[in-house]
Design a protein around this nucleic acid. Structure first.
Length: 453
RNA sequence: GUGGAUGUAGCUCAGUUGGUUAGAGUACUAGAUUGUGAUUCUAGGGGUCGCCGGUUCAAGCCCGGUCUUCCACCCCA
């Protein structure tokens, strides 16, 4: 026997039942994006390696899937290159293309490239797969979909507020209870400035992020090992032990960051966002979380992250403000802000909560039973009328046992079955069976359509 | 990239100190029921025990390697 076929690590097939659920997720997110005035774009699965490299930090570069050049690429590699260069450098010579790692960087490239064709502020959404050479785990795949909405070319904080509303709308539709965590990169910069270690902002935020997991003492140890002085660590203490509700947190922070211009700016922005949200109807819990440190490589203002309150799976949506993402592609001073929904994790959460609307599994509305040549010909005629009423129907293609055809309807969750046998042919009627009640009634084609609509 | 587990029927899992022909539930197919699908009863098909190698008279079980999936770290959606 041939070896069983397989698919690459971290990738998945989807059977029809799974696709139905996934499409429901994509359609829901898409409908909200549209409702808020965003337009769809698509970019290629692969980008040039130059476009992607260096945009995601050292860790990110390692996780980019590279595509081997076609043709006689090996002849261009000198023996010296082969023996002396690192695999990283060699890869750069063997590969000119790579699979996209996220949708934000290709979008920045897109904006720069099409700057004369698009209207600013530019609101776009994009639902496409991305690839990461990560080690797979639960909720972590090598191929997964991101659903991004970004607005570029506007500094207004209205955009941040709108994105929070989008997040809230989407998860309200999914009926997933969530917490939206908000932070601001400028607050983090302010903190680093105040304690006199502006260079160490990344180390500091990563350490703060671990507070829940490893405790205050270990965080302090970690900070010391990163080269922070005892004095600096002591200055950080009030921030590490920051607690209470939003008002208390923001009050403490404004006192601590009074001497930092950038810190004050961050607080001002955050207060504006929270105050505006408080006048809107938002179902999700929204909290200020200064330990939120995601995407430090390019975020410059507000940072968002969404977590399910009931299912532990990492963040299911994230985003933030980036002031100069297009700068690296030669278009400076354009500010953007965006969010990304992790459709595959939302899929996992919904599966766990089993919160799909019942309607989505129903595709065919009525199945016509096949009793043989004459009967199925009649059914085909009837079905034209049914489809004209925009009712999805199908005829069982084989003259199989009725039991089997009934089971087919049952398994496919088809709510109605039309029976046209000898008797019905004679009387010009259709017997309609309601699969949920088991009731059978006699109909003309017109009354049948009305009945099942 | 680091550390730790896992793999037996389509799915969920039993399988004793290594010992005849590897089991159960469920799903599937057929029949009981020749015009009726969530129940019931009966029968049937389906396995290179992840893969490769080693130890042994003998391996699902022991050893080595490899792949997969999963968990923690890292990072992230």
């Amino acid at each position: 026997m041939a070896q069983k076929p397989s698919i690459p690590k971290g990738t998945r097939d989807f059977i029809p039942a799974e696709m139905t659920k996934r499409r429901y997720i994509f359609d829901t997110i898409r409908s909200v994006f549209t409702l808020f005035g965003y337009h769809a774009i698509e970019t290629p699965a692969m980008e040039t390696l130059d476009t992607l490299m260096g945009k995601y930090g050292e860790e990110g570069d390692r996780l980019i899937f590279k595509i081997l050049n076609s043709g006689e690429f090996q002849q261009k590699i000198s023996a010296e290159n082969l023996s002396h260069n690192s695999s990283q450098q060699l890869a750069a010579k063997l590969c000119e293309k790579a699979l996209r790692y996220d949708l934000t960087v290709p979008f920045a490239r897109f904006v720069v490239q099409h700057r004369n064709d698009i209207q600013f502020p530019f609101k776009r959404y994009q639902i496409q797969p991305v690839w990461r050479a990560d080690r797979p785990q639960k909720g972590r795949y090598r191929e997964f979909y991101q659903c991004d909405a970004d607005i570029i070319g506007s500094d207004s904080l209205i955009n941040e507020i709108e994105l929070v509303q989008i997040i809230d709308s989407v998860f309200t539709l999914f009926d997933i209870p969530i917490t939206i965590k908000i932070n601001n990169r400028k607050i983090l910069s302010g903190i680093a400035e105040i304690i006199g270690e502006p260079e160490k902002i990344v180390d500091i935020t990563i350490a703060i992020d671990k507070l829940d997991k490893i405790g205050l003492e270990n965080v302090q140890k970690e900070l010391a090992s990163k080269g922070l002085t005892e004095e600096a660590i002591n200055k950080l203490n009030p921030i590490l032990s920051l607690s209470g509700n939003y008002t208390e947190k923001i009050h403490t922070l404004s006192q601590l960051l009074d001497a930092s211009e950038i810190g004050k700016k961050g607080i001002e922005e955050t207060e504006y966002i929270f105050s505006s949200l408080s006048h809107l109807s938002i179902s999700a819990d929204v909290e200020l979380d200064i330990s939120l440190a995601r995407g430090l490589n390019y975020y410059t203002g507000a940072i968002f992250e969404v977590k399910s309150q009931t299912v532990a799976i990492g963040s299911i949506c994230g985003g933030g403000r980036y002031d100069n993402l297009t700068g690296v592609f030669g278009m400076p001073d354009i500010s953007g802000v965006g969010i990304s929904f992790g459709a595959d994790r939302i899929y996992d959460v919904l599966n766990q909560l089993d919160k799909y609307p019942q309607e989505i599994t129903q595709t065919t509305r009525i199945l016509f039973v096949n009793f043989g040549e004459q009967e199925s010909q009649k059914a085909l005629q009837y079905m034209q009328s049914v489809r004209k009423q925009n009712i999805a129907c199908e005829l069982y293609p084989d003259n199989a046992k009725m039991k089997k055809q009934m089971k087919y309807a049952h398994d496919k969750d088809i709510p109605f079955v039309a029976i046209i046998g000898e008797d019905e042919l004679r009387s010009e009627n259709i017997t309609l069976k309601n699969m949920s009640t088991g009731e059978q009634t006699s109909h003309t084609i017109n009354s049948l359509c009305t009945e099942i609509k």
